[in-house]
């Protein structure tokens, strides 16, 4: 199985390294045609304004939106979560509007406020998942079809799922814990024919 990792900018190499630990090849995606035959896509951390501009100029939006309509699995971490959101608080960047959530960029503050905290993630068992939050976005609204998978102690959602869409405020790719990547791999539809 090959999983696409959007490689316009950000920590795509870290995602590819985790996939490799799980025996899966991560394909760097910079142009729309590279999405062919890909049933799962990770949008990594990075700067969402940069990702948004590069997605627009290289016509990446429509094919990713189409992947989502076809029920393929898409996971956004940090800046990637901003990109998959339905709406964000500011006008810029322009999200892909895939998942029924609202997001506020840098909602936890600047870099000096970046933090690490253990989380309980439902569906991942009792062992805590170490959350690394870097200038992380805050989920401001959760739609009815969206399942909250993890929150901070104050109830703030930080991991959400809607069907085959996954979004996390934090960076599992910066830890040695493969569980969320494995969880995402399990969301990828297996039987889709390449020509679909």
């Amino acid at each position: 199985m090959e999983v696409g990792v959007l490689a316009l900018q950000g920590d795509f190499a870290e995602h590819i390294a985790v996939l490799k630990r799980l025996g899966v090849t991560g394909r760097e995606i910079r142009l729309p045609e590279q999405l062919e035959n890909i049933n799962g896509l990770i949008i990594p951390g990075g700067e969402s304004t940069t990702l948004s501009r590069l997605m627009s100029i290289y016509s990446m939006r429509e094919p990713i939106e189409q992947m989502s309509r076809q029920g393929k699995a898409i996971w956004g971490t940090c800046a990637g979560m901003i990109m998959v959101a339905q709406e964000i608080t500011e006008e810029d960047p322009v999200p892909l509007k895939l998942m029924d959530i609202g997001v506020l960029r840098n909602g936890f503050g600047r870099q000096v406020d970046s933090f690490e905290q253990d989380l309980q993630v439902i569906d991942l068992g009792p062992a805590p998942f170490h959350g690394v939050f870097i200038r992380a976005p805050v989920i401001t609204r959760v739609g009815r079809e969206v399942k909250v998978m993890a929150t901070l102690p104050d109830g703030q959602p930080v991991a959400v799922r809607q069907g085959n869409l996954l979004a996390t405020s934090f960076h599992p790719e910066l830890t040695a814990d493969n569980r969320l990547h494995q969880y995402f791999l399990d969301l990828i539809p297996q039987e889709s024919s390449p020509s679909a």
Partner: peptide, 23 residues
């Protein structure tokens, strides 16, 4: 009580990871 850690090596180096492939 869940520990919240700020200013760690992980979040410092992690921020640089997010800048990769950028200008």
């Amino acid at each position: 009580m869940v520990d919240v850690l700020t200013g760690t090596d992980t979040v410092k180096a992690g921020h640089a990871q997010m800048l990769k492939g950028g200008v």
